[in-house]
Amino acid sequence: MTVTSARFGYDDLRGLITRVVDVKHAPEDSTLDVLWTLYDRVLDLSPERLDSPDRDRFYLSKGHNPGSFYAVLAAKGYLPDAWLDEAFTAGSRLGGHPDRTLVPGAEISSGSLGHGLPLAVGTALGLRAQGLLKPRIYVLLGDAELDEGTNHEAMAYAGATGLDNITVVVVDNGSASHGWPGGIASRFTAQGWSASEVDGRDHDAIEAGLRGHHGTGPHAVVAFATSSI
């Protein structure tokens, strides 16, 4: 699909989000700065290269409250901003959870928690088997999503096999019911991952974390963020 769209800047994002959802749906905002930093500074990707085998991939595993995701995709020209006004309606491509068959730029369909990282493990293996060593796969999870055991299957395997083309970013807004005593980063480092902890509002810190992989294993970034819309 070819999509033409106006481009927007960071300061336009909150206006775009309010076109998707009522502002009282504040959880949108905890992922906003990470999403913006990914698409603005980190991902080797553009709307024209969505079919390129050599592109970076972004897997939004935590598909709930995708307003920020849709806003960033609209701002960066992946989809027309007019789609935001029609979200959730009968004919809309934008729903309560992103569907990759409907949304340009959505690499996976998500919504059920705990699928993005296991899918990313398979894609990382597939890229490696095809000799595509340049692309990275970035996966965004929520701290409460980490409750799902499938993440831990994937973390253990990716760490044990040194799957070095994956970067996970866990946006931690403190919503896991039982918390993560000892910290989320330690769950990854114990399994052979490198990990960084960053302020989830600080774009320079987020970028440094996202670029913090060493090439010897998978990398995790824990981005602390609270909702503040």
Binding site: P118, A120, V121, L125, Q130, T150
Partner: peptide, 28 residues
């Protein structure tokens, strides 16, 4: 070694990883 992949006793990961392989253009 890149195309015979044993994930251990992790069947959910096995099936999801197969889906992820397909997303990359492989035939799992």
């Amino acid at each position: 070694p890149d195309r015979v992949l044993n994930v251990g006793i992790r069947e959910a990961l096995m099936v999801s990883a197969a889906g992820g392989l397909a997303l990359s253009g492989m035939r799992p």
